[in-house]
Design a protein around this nucleic acid. Structure first.
Ligand SMILES: [Mn+2]
Ligand SMILES: [Mn+2]
Ligand SMILES: [Zn+2]
Ligand SMILES: [Zn+2]
Lengths: 140, 140
DNA sequence: ACATACTTTAGAATAATTATAAAGTAGTTA
DNA sequence: TAACTACTTTATAATTATTCTAAAGTATGT
């Protein structure tokens, strides 16, 4: 007997543990999000467009927002922000770092960045996490 | 004869170098933003509300947005994002780090954080800047 | 099958931001 | 200073991302 961590949960388990019945729409969304090798970074609009492109019967905007929101609340997605007014989501829920390259987001594993010096938290506070963004530009 | 860097520009100079005539409204906004000791982090709504609170003749929303946008484009303000769909601005335009503490933003001087290990930029790219966010929570 | 609870959806509502266009103000010229 | 012109401010409309609402659809238990 061994308990399952979020990483090993199937996309159906992730729905269940988010309090969502695995309906057709939700299963397709969850599969699209989690059944892949690499981390996926997306906005709800992007998700909706790429999934609905190939379908005759479209999944509604509200279902995309509701499902993503529930998955996020249950800790299966992480929300982050770029420099515009849109929410991005990350299937990698561990604290980790990113390259930002003209709107493209790439994960950097936590062990690729280590610190020589870090400030103390202000009095009465403690550090929850430390995340780095490395912004890229083209050579020359 | 010595050239002025952005830091030493008066709030009027910052308007001029943003291509904005120093009208009454703009001068008041620029003074409010830049005539202070410490870095100021704000949203346009917050700026508008705090400035208009004490005025009988309100400055319009459009003027706030236009002025902030021009100052940002000229490099006198830096835009950043928290985890919601609102733009924040920073009067500290140098690349630097932040504490995020439940919506409150605090500058960390660049020399307070140094790295032991950093990844190389992907091929064809170079690093523009490296910025750290330290998220805080309350003790216990 | 019936009742009930949960789900999906279209469309309305909201919030942040940007665009439009009319009225106001300033700078320049005669 | 009067007239001319260009720039500015503002109210309001439009847009975008997101959330809400309520009606119609679907699943589950008896
Ligand atoms: Mn926007
Ligand atoms: Mn929002
Ligand atoms: Zn990531
Ligand atoms: Zn700052």
């Amino acid at each position: 007997m061994h308990k399952m961590n979020s990483k090993n949960k199937t996309f159906i388990d992730k729905l269940r543990s988010s309090g969502l019945r695995p309906t057709n729409q939700r299963v397709e969304i969850s599969k699209f999000l989690f059944n892949r090798k690499k981390t996926f970074h997306f906005t709800v609009e992007e998700l909706k467009n790429s999934m609905n492109l190939k379908r005759s019967k479209k999944i509604s905007t509200a279902t995309f927002y509701n499902t993503v929101h529930a998955l996020k609340s249950a800790g299966h997605l992480k929300e982050f922000s770029l420099e515009n007014n849109t929410s991005y989501y990350d299937t990698n829920i561990k604290s980790h770092h990113h390259f930002f390259d003209n709107g493209k987001v790439i994960d950097i594993k936590s062990d690729k960045i280590t610190f020589h010096k870090l400030p103390d938290a202000p009095k009465g506070k403690k550090i929850k996490n430390v995340e780095v963004v490395i912004r890229l530009e083209n050579n020359n």
